[in-house]
Amino acid sequence: MTKEFLCKDDILTPLLKRTKTLLVKNFNLKLIGNNSEIYCPDKLDLKNLTSMIGTGGTLSIIFAVSYEDKILEELVKIFMNGEKIDKEEFEELKESVASEIANTIIGNSLHFFPNKGRGVTITPPITITKAKSISKYKGSKIATSNIVTNFGEMTINTIGPRLLFVKKFNFKE
């Protein structure tokens, strides 16, 4: 069994599945291509805006959900349901939507993590803009997957201790 397979089964598969459902079913975006390749790079190449959420308790992982401008702009319009938005507020809303989408996909997926996510807590999101990349430290592991839609791309990244990716999870009951 490969490292990627364990990582994919336990965390990334439910996250990707939930993200795709959300984008298609709730926001009417179209997915382009296969959208399910998971790879483990040494460095995260970030898009224009990234929302980061940490989990604690029985699972310690950092999630970084990174968005191209185009997909965020479309999501803001969908959230605002046709309401007029001025330029300054639009930028603020982009950050809020980035955090909200990350929070929703991670929060919704907890029930589908090992042990139904029991004892897992999540932090409020932090948004970073214009960052180029995040490099992993020795002993950590990054797993990432890109989702391509008709309104641009987003990536779902998990950063955690290497052990989480090479051994089965040992959740507290």
């Binding site: 929070n103 929703t104 929060g107 997926s109 029930h111 139904k116 897992v120």
Partner: peptide, 8 residues
């Protein structure tokens, strides 16, 4: 009204 899907 929350994103948390855990039963607990």
């Amino acid at each position: 009204i929350t994103s948390h899907g855990q039963e607990e």
